[in-house]
């Protein structure tokens, strides 16, 4: 292979700046989408376990809709189709005046998609707590809201830390799809460096390493969280 290696290109002012800016946008999209995904996902996940039939059905419909359409298609729908089907004034505002349209669209698309996956984890966690404790809480005189607030959610959130860690890592990796609607996040910036410098190996190696470091960092944080919130004598090892 006749390839002119030049790792130095990654540390040249302009290109280093692109990488740093890319990392910044990757964090900005992933974290904001995560907040949205947690908020919506917890509500929808709890909703699926409630005794009320209409609420449970509505939440199931949400999960099936957002989980079963490819994320890339969802991003295109939000970015290209949504402005055309909302009322004219709103559509015009979305196309012309909305600040940072690529960023906002990526956060909404990624957040609502991930929410459907978070909802399933939350539902599984609540179901894992079991009907016995729910009965005990009701027998203790708690309302449904109090039963969730003090018993079901605190236990199920601890149970789902490991699968939620996977979702958190996935949201970082999925944020790379935002480049397709024009957001200059890490993958897009690496691609741009490759095009400007013809140093594709170096540029994408940098992106790979940065994604892995972010993921490992998140894993360590999640393990610490898991250890810190562990219930003595309940699940796992002491």
């Amino acid at each position: 292979m006749n390839y002119n290696w030049n790792w130095g290109v990654l540390f040249e002012g302009e290109y280093l700046g692109w990488l740093i800016s890319g990392v910044g946008w990757t964090f900005a999209v992933a974290l904001a989408a995560w907040v949205l995904a947690l908020a919506v996902g917890v509500l929808v996940g709890v909703g699926r376990t409630l005794p009320s039939k209409p609420v449970a059905t509505l939440c199931t419909a949400y999960v099936e809709l957002f989980r079963n359409v490819p994320l890339l298609v969802q991003l295109f729908l939000w970015y290209f189709v949504m402005p055309e089907i909302v009322p004219d004034d709103l559509g015009r505002w979305m196309k012309r005046d909305m600040p940072n349209p690529e960023y906002v669209t990526a956060v909404i698309g990624l957040g609502l998609y991930t929410a459907s996956r978070v909802a399933e984890q939350v539902r599984a966690g609540i179901n894992a707590v079991g009907p016995g404790l729910t009965s005990a809480a009701y027998a203790n005189g708690f309302s449904t809201a109090q039963t969730y607030r003090y018993v079901l959610l605190p236990i199920s959130f601890r149970l789902i830390v490991p699968p939620m860690t996977s979702e958190f890592l996935t949201i970082f990796k999925n944020s790379s799809l935002a480049l397709t609607i024009g957001l200059l996040e890490l993958t897009a910036q690496s691609q741009q460096i490759a095009e400007y410098t013809f140093q594709g190996f170096e540029a994408f190696t940098a992106a790979t390493v940065i994604y892995v470091v972010i993921a490992l960092g998140a894993t360590v944080i999640a393990q610490t969280l898991e250890k810190y919130t562990r219930i003595p004598g309940y699940v796992g090892k002491d």
Binding site: G132, A136, A139, N140, F142, S143, I155, R158, I231, G233
Partner: peptide, 21 residues
Amino acid sequence: NLTRLRSRIGMVFQHFELYPH
């Protein structure tokens, strides 16, 4: 009001059902 009624009747279960956390 079942919630109020239940708060006045104690119940003990086969599998204890203490709040583990």
